[in-house]
């Protein structure tokens, strides 16, 4: 009995310490949360009092007027995804997205200030108003559209199929009964499983493995985003992209903070007016053509005036 009691006593003391720690952590967390809510409430109050503000969010996105006054527009771009957004040998920002970003800033009469973003933090950057616009090869999806507002598209991606030039595959029909290499979890995998069950799929985890499989002749062709296979084929002689555009095209568009209509409307206006000078075709020729080669149909990739054909 005595030992039992002792053990019980020990357990409860330890239990108390643990409980105290847990409570303390919870207390700290709730203090932080409360502080956050309190200030957010203040921010909303401040916004309501400010006649110029258009939305009562947690924090305010800058309006077009505020951006003009500050003289700088903050644009989130990729810095290591050539040829869309990258930094060249001299340390300057380059790429298809960056060319458009520079033009956007120039026509607005402000300086473009580039912020290095990654695929995963593009939405948080907009939600927290760390940037005014994201121009980072941002594919439009329903899920993302609930959190940010997309402007009109300026590019589209669909699937491409690359195969050895000697046994080039130029149509989906030619793939019947053949072995197609795909990367797991990509749109190519789901597209072929659903629409072309007669094609034998060989799946790999990594892009590098899939490309090696193609090089070794373990499959007849490889399919993934057309922009990706086009760039790869250009640097690997002996391989061509026989099918450059397959399946439903996803569009790529600039994005702004949810509800930041003044900036989104300005971008839409800009995209529409740039169509008269075929701006994105020129942009393509300058940034993407050197990577994809000239045997690609520009209109498979470029969207002019926000109109997807």
């Amino acid at each position: 009995m005595k030992t039992d009691n002792e053990n019980k006593g020990k357990l409860t003391t330890r239990g108390k310490t643990v409980l105290a720690s847990v409570l303390a952590v919870l207390a700290l967390a709730s203090v932080l949360a409360l502080a956050g809510c309190g200030s957010a409430a203040d921010a909303v109050k401040g916004a309501a009092g400010d006649a110029a503000s258009t939305e009562a969010g947690q924090s305010q996105a800058r309006t077009l007027e505020q951006i003009k006054q500050s003289g700088t527009i903050n644009i989130g771009v990729f810095t290591d995804k050539a040829p869309f957004g990258y930094v060249d040998g001299n340390g300057t920002y380059q790429g298809y997205d960056v060319v458009f970003a520079n033009r956007l800033a120039q026509d607005l009469g402000v300086k473009a200030s580039f912020v290095a973003t990654d695929a995963a933090n593009r939405v948080p950057y907009l939600e927290s108003n760390k940037v005014d616009v994201i121009l980072a090869n941002f594919t439009v999806t329903d899920e993302r559209a609930q959190k940010v507002d997309f402007a009109e598209p300026y590019m589209k991606v669909s699937l491409g199929v690359v195969s050895p030039t000697s046994k080039s595959i130029t149509s989906v029909e030619a793939l019947a009964g053949k072995t197609l290499i795909v990367t797991k979890g990509t749109t190519a995998e789901t597209y072929f499983e659903k629409n072309h069950p007669d094609v034998t799929l060989q799946k790999y985890d990594q892009y590098a493995d899939a490309y090696n499989a193609l090089l070794d002749g373990r499959g007849d062709a490889f399919s993934t985003d057309n922009t990706e296979v086009l760039a790869w084929a250009k640097s690997n002689p002996g391989y061509t992209v026989g099918i450059t555009s397959l399946g439903d095209a996803d569009t790529i568009a600039p994005a702004v903070h949810k509800g930041n209509d003044t900036v989104r409307d300005y971008i839409n206006q800009e995209i529409n007016s740039l169509a008269s000078e075929s701006f994105f075709h020129a942009d393509y020729a300058q940034t993407l053509e050197p990577v994809y080669g000239d045997d690609v149909n520009v209109d498979d990739i470029v969207v002019e005036g926000g109109k997807v054909s």
Binding site: A35, G36, C37, S39, A40, A43, Q58, S59, Q60, N121, P124, Y125, E127, S128, N129, K130
Partner: peptide
């Protein structure tokens, strides 16, 4: 980075 911007601006 993002939290303080959202909550306190």
């Amino acid at each position: 980075f993002f939290g303080t911007a959202g909550a306190w601006g």
